[in-house]
């Protein structure tokens, strides 16, 4: 496993709330190899975003806290690192793009200044050099007239353009891993495709690995090599993308795939789009068994008694289900 960049082992990120301890991420394992695109999918509230933010330790503590596990970055555990050490990893080794391009940029600084800030911090550039580099990055992400726009404020850009700025910002220090936390969810459909294409293009150019967090299975099918499916703070299935779509083993994964709207089928067979019944269970004191049991049509008493282990069902294909 010499090529493993990131190896998360049994990570637990919990939050203390008035209602009790919320086990947002409750012992997940996930690894990303060099130059690989890994999709992390699941419904809202399943722990995807908390996982992403845990990697860069962007969790507010309190109320959050790491209850256990390891986050190995090129073999080195990030969890015990101090703030100064962590700041050397952020942006330079691992960068992140958030869901909301409208609010992720500081409204009072020009986009150039915000990109330059990170360059000056990590590459010790002068103000002039940093602004020039920022302009280069903007033109790289296909923002027209980048030399002039580098002096514009975020509110002068549209949502899609701001997400391009965010990508430029994230890639400005050539990180080895880009975490994209639902980067297209807040955008128009046509813009979504452009942003995904841009990320693909950037990946070819810089060769970084991408952790793509999304709830859109279609996006995963198009862009990822491997997929991890999360449910209620746990990994329920992990597989190469072909295996996952060709032979989904977990009932939850099957449900997710069935809920993808398909033009060809809907038109001819008048089939109804299948939704998974119910919602994600409370993560405060979850029941002992499989967390999906309550919504699973195959659930039996075995499922409710103990959490099934992750078992291998094919090459690189793991599933947490007794079936």
């Amino acid at each position: 496993m010499a090529d493993t960049l990131l190896d998360i082992r049994d990570l637990k990120t919990w939050f203390a709330t008035d209602d009790g301890m919320v086990r947002a991420v409750d012992g997940i394992d996930l690894h990303i190899d060099r130059s690989e695109t890994v999709g992390v999918v699941g419904e809202s509230g399943c722990g995807k975003t908390v996982t992403a933010r845990s990697i860069l330790k962007l969790i507010d503590m309190p109320p959050g806290r790491f209850e256990g596990g390891q986050i190995l970055w090129q073999g080195r555990d990030l969890l015990p690192l101090g703030a100064a050490e962590m700041d050397k990893i952020r942006a330079r080794e691992i960068a992140i793009v958030f869901q909301e391009p409208m609010t992720s940029l500081n409204p009072v600084y020009t986009v150039g200044a915000q990109i330059a800030e990170v360059l000056r911090e990590h590459e010790k550039l002068t103000r002039r050099q940093a602004i020039d580099r920022a302009a280069e990055m903007l033109s790289l992400v296909n923002i027209p007239n980048a030399k002039a726009r580098v002096h514009d404020y975020p509110h002068q850009f549209s949502g899609g353009m701001r997400q391009r700025v965010m990508i430029a910002l994230a890639l400005s220090c050539r990180p080895k891993l880009l975490i994209a936390d639902e980067p297209t969810t807040a955008l128009d459909v046509t813009i979504q495709a452009q942003i995904l294409e841009l990320m693909q293009e950037m990946k070819e150019r810089f060769g970084m690995a991408i952790m793509l967090i999304t709830h859109a299975m279609g996006v995963v099918a198009e862009t990822c090599q491997r997929v991890t499916v999360m449910y209620a703070g746990k990994v329920v299935e992990e597989a190469p993308v072909d295996a996952l779509f060709g032979n989904p083993r977990h009932p939850y994964t099957q449900g997710l795939i069935r809920s993808i709207p398909r033009v060809d089928r809907a038109a001819t067979h008048k089939e109804r789009l299948e939704a998974i019944p119910g919602t994600v269970p409370s993560l405060v004191d979850p029941p002992p068994g499989c967390r999906f049991a309550r919504r699973c049509r195959f659930a039996s008493d075995v499922c409710r008694q103990a959490m099934p282990p992750l078992k291998q069902v094919g090459p690189g294909h793991f599933v947490r289900c007794v079936l």
């Binding site: 933010r53 860069l56 962007l58 703030a83 100064a84 962590m86 700041d87 050397k88 990893i89 952020r90 942006a91 330079r92 960068a95 992140i96 958030f98 909301e100 609010t103 992720s104 940029l105 500081n106 409204p107 009072v108 800030e117 990170v118 911090e121 990590h122 965010m166 910002l169």
Partner: peptide, 24 residues
């Protein structure tokens, strides 16, 4: 959100507070 963005830039908590929080 943009404060989280600032934190993800690895510029240190002091600069996050003075440049991004206090300023706005």
């Amino acid at each position: 959100d943009y404060v989280t963005t600032a934190r993800s830039k690895g510029i240190g908590e002091r600069k996050v507070i003075t440049r991004h929080v206090v300023r706005t």
